[in-house]
Amino acid sequence: MAFQPEVNPFDLSVVVVYGVLLAGIVLTIRGRVLAGYWLAASIVLAALALFIHFFHGAQSETPHVIMRSYDDPALGIPALIVLFALLAALACLAGYALRVLLRRHQPPVRS
């Protein structure tokens, strides 16, 4: 499998991912977005990654396809580790953002 020079869905997804992350970082630093943004962003980005890698039919970039993209399988293993680490990080981000949102909407505990 050779890399193609034309623009493809992967290129567009990278622009979307970096746009969401960069906007979130900038707006968080400025105090404009909080946990709700990061919860939505983590859900959207995880859904995008899952769709592209597992639910995109014949065009899915499954772990098998990722491994076959490299001449040496030892080079495909780090790519799979990155994919699953990314999905795990997005799940953790979603969980933490949800925890912050739920805590914010609970009445304070009085001693």
Rank of each mutant, 00 (worst) to 15 (best):
A2T: 08
P5S: 10
E6W: 05
V7A: 04
N8T: 07
P9I: 03
D11T: 10
D11W: 12
L12T: 03
V16L: 15
V17G: 02
V17M: 12
V17A: 09
L21S: 04
L22H: 01
A23V: 15
G24Q: 05
I25C: 05
I25H: 00
L27W: 05
R30W: 05
R30D: 00
G31D: 07
A35Q: 10
A35V: 06
G36S: 06
G36K: 06
G36M: 01
Y37L: 04
L39V: 01
S42C: 03
S42V: 02
I43V: 15
I43Y: 04
L45I: 09
A46V: 02
A46K: 05
A47R: 03
A47E: 06
L48Q: 14
A49F: 14
A49P: 00
H53P: 01
H53Q: 11
H56V: 03
H56P: 11
Q59M: 05
Q59G: 00
E61I: 12
V65Y: 12
V65A: 14
I66P: 01
I66R: 10
M67T: 09
M67I: 13
R68K: 13
S69W: 04
S69L: 13
S69D: 08
S69T: 10
D71Y: 01
G76P: 11
I77Y: 14
I77M: 05
A79E: 08
A79H: 10
I81F: 10
L83C: 03
F84P: 00
A88M: 13
A88P: 02
L90K: 11
A91Y: 03
A91G: 12
C92P: 00
A94M: 05
Y96W: 12
A97H: 02
L98R: 15
V100C: 09
R104K: 14
H105R: 14
H105V: 10
Q106Y: 02
Q106P: 00
Q106M: 13
P107N: 09
P107G: 08
P108L: 15
P108A: 15
